[in-house]
């Protein structure tokens, strides 16, 4: 059987490299056209991870760095599925997240924002999707924070999400935003995405049905990775 390749990435849907309102992109964006490659073994394979790579507590950001008690902030569950463009769940794939604390401060030696570090909050977690592609984390809602771009730019509350899928061609890092945040529309990083529907797809709705009454709220965030072609009638792949 021929290995099936992935649908071509929609470069009119994805953000381009050069987005001048996000100033850092100006000197870090390639100017020449990318070389388009049909999938070979190097692209349709990718790393695999198992439960021996992580610990059960790794997906609980309320507990995984707690020293003297729980972190400060609005307690939330973030849950959803990793899917491909065909709508199939992507099972057993690694999902990693990182975020600021409830005050908008990252636990990073390069972050000097005046909001305080939370002694009980690390700000990272990871999990592996189940056999249906489902995942969940527990954390606190991150705060908005200022960043140097224009003098008064603020990032909307967001969680960074890293996903692998089954192939190196599916590798993706994105950010999850929260329903109702007025900063989303004003953020030059969000606005690197040219299509409003693609932005909407990164905004997690409040999901009261998944909340834990008297304990924590929930937001639902599905992540879509590239889908694969079927090998209908293909007995010779033309080209290189």
């Amino acid at each position: 059987m021929k290995p099936a390749e992935f649908y071509q990435r929609d470069r009119l849907w994805q953000p381009p490299a050069l987005t001048p309102d996000y100033k850092t992109s100006v000197a870090r964006s390639p100017r020449f056209a990318m070389l388009s490659l049909q999938g070979s073994m190097s692209e349709i394979t990718g790393p695999t991870f198992g439960h021996s790579d992580i610990d059960a507590i790794d997906n609980d950001l309320i507990k995984n760095y707690a020293k003297t008690g729980d972190p400060v902030g609005e307690r939330i569950i973030v849950h959803g599925r990793v899917l491909d463009e065909n709508g199939s769940g992507v099972p057993n794939t690694l999902v990693e997240i990182w975020q600021a604390n409830a005050g908008g401060r990252y636990r990073h030696k390069k972050d000097s924002y005046l909001a305080p570090i939370d002694p009980n909050f690390g700000g990272c977690g990871r999990t592996i999707t189940d056999d249906q592609g489902y995942y969940y984390f527990r954390t606190v809602k991150p705060g908005a924070y200022p960043w140097r771009n224009w003098v008064n730019n603020w990032r909307p509350a967001h969680i960074h999400v890293s996903v692998f899928g089954t192939a190196f061609a599916q590798r993706l890092i994105t950010q999850m935003y929260f329903e109702g945040d007025p900063l989303i529309a004003k953020c030059p990083i969000v606005q690197t995405i040219p299509d409003q529907r693609a932005i909407d797809q990164l905004i997690a709705p409040l999901d009261l049905n998944a909340a834990v009454p008297l304990d924590c709220l929930a937001y639902k965030f599905d992540i879509v990775l590239r889908g694969r072609r079927s090998t209908l009638f293909e007995n010779r792949l033309e080209g290189n």
Partner: peptide, 10 residues
């Protein structure tokens, strides 16, 4: 078909 989630900077 679904659309791939848009990438955002790391």
């Amino acid at each position: 078909y679904l659309k791939e989630s848009a990438s955002q900077t790391a």
